[in-house]
């Protein structure tokens, strides 16, 4: 019962979003809280006309689209809107697994400028999984109307990742967003996320688990984050990791044959 994703126990790799694993073009993920205009950003970038209603949970079908920037084709994946990535719901699990295991070349986290604090919660969690994060502060026009000002340079400095302000409905800031995405994808800009420091007890526990995890998953998955999830008793992630590790070997072997 439930989403097929759950019942088949499949890993949320690129395949479940119909992105072939062998794809050459860069893959960019869009994460964000519900109702941040994430789908509007998606539509504006891809030219697709996925309907964007104003009610929580409308992006139930993950959407995939593509766009061309500077002569190069990018695949864009619209992840379900979530408040967090702690896997309390199927949506959160899908979003998290995609960022973790499908390893997009960049993850754009869309946040609502009128409600930044709440949205940063998700940004901080995304940054724990992947370095290649771009924060898109959307609905900046609405924030202006409400006299809310956001110091995006400072935000970028505090987070350690690029920040772009946009008003996706009017198209404001989108070309800059595309530039920044390509900078991150091709390594011209290397985000250095400044991660949340936990209480000494938690940090100590992470430090104890991290080496063992790194030995298992290698450099492809963030060991600090996995340690944190295991401490949280996240059994589902354990299963996903097992599938990932078992699958990685044959894939790597196949790749070597091909190259």
């Amino acid at each position: 019962m439930g989403l097929t994703y759950q019942s088949t126990g499949k890993l949320a790799t690129r395949e479940i979003f119909n992105v072939p694993a062998s794809i050459r073009q860069p893959v960019v993920a869009l994460a964000g809280n519900p109702n941040t205009g994430k789908s509007t950003v998606f539509n504006a970038l891809t030219g697709l006309r996925q309907h964007t209603g104003n009610w929580p949970g409308k992006t139930v079908l993950q959407a995939k689209g593509s766009y061309i920037h500077d002569g190069r084709k990018y695949t864009l994946v619209d992840l379900p809107g979530t408040y967090s990535l702690l896997a309390n719901s199927v949506e959160e699990e899908v979003a998290r697994d995609f960022i973790c295991f499908a390893r997009p070349d960049a993850t754009v986290t869309v946040v609502d400028a009128t409600c930044l604090e709440r949205n940063l919660n998700l940004v901080l969690q995304v940054m724990e999984i992947t370095d290649k994060v771009i924060v898109c502060v959307n609905l900046i026009d609405e924030a202006r109307r409400k006299n809310i000002r956001i110091d995006s340079d400072k935000l970028s400095e505090r987070l350690g990742v690029p920040v772009v302000t946009t008003a996706a409905r009017s198209g404001e800031g989108l070309s800059r967003l595309l530039d920044v995405i390509s900078d991150v994808v091709f390594g011209r800009v290397q985000p250095k996320p400044r991660l949340v420091r936990y209480t000494p007890e938690v940090e100590e526990a992470i430090a104890r688990l991290e080496p063992g995890i790194r030995a298992l998953v290698g450099g492809e998955i963030n060991a600090r984050w996995v340690a944190l999830r295991l401490l949280d008793g996240d059994i589902k992630l354990g299963h996903s990791l097992e599938i990932f590790c078992n699958r990685r070997e044959p894939v790597r072997a196949a790749r070597e044959v091909l190259v």
């Binding site: 604090e117 919660n121 901080l124 006299n147 809310i148 000002r149 400072k154 936990y198 209480t199 944190l228």
Partner: peptide, 26 residues
């Protein structure tokens, strides 16, 4: 609890530094 609280506190601190509301708003 401790993990979630740390994350929210970090978010609160950052937002406090970068967001300013010049007037009570419309």
């Amino acid at each position: 609890d401790s993990v979630v609280k740390s994350i929210f506190q970090a978010a609160e601190n950052i937002a406090g530094e970068v967001v300013s509301c010049s007037s009570p708003g419309r």
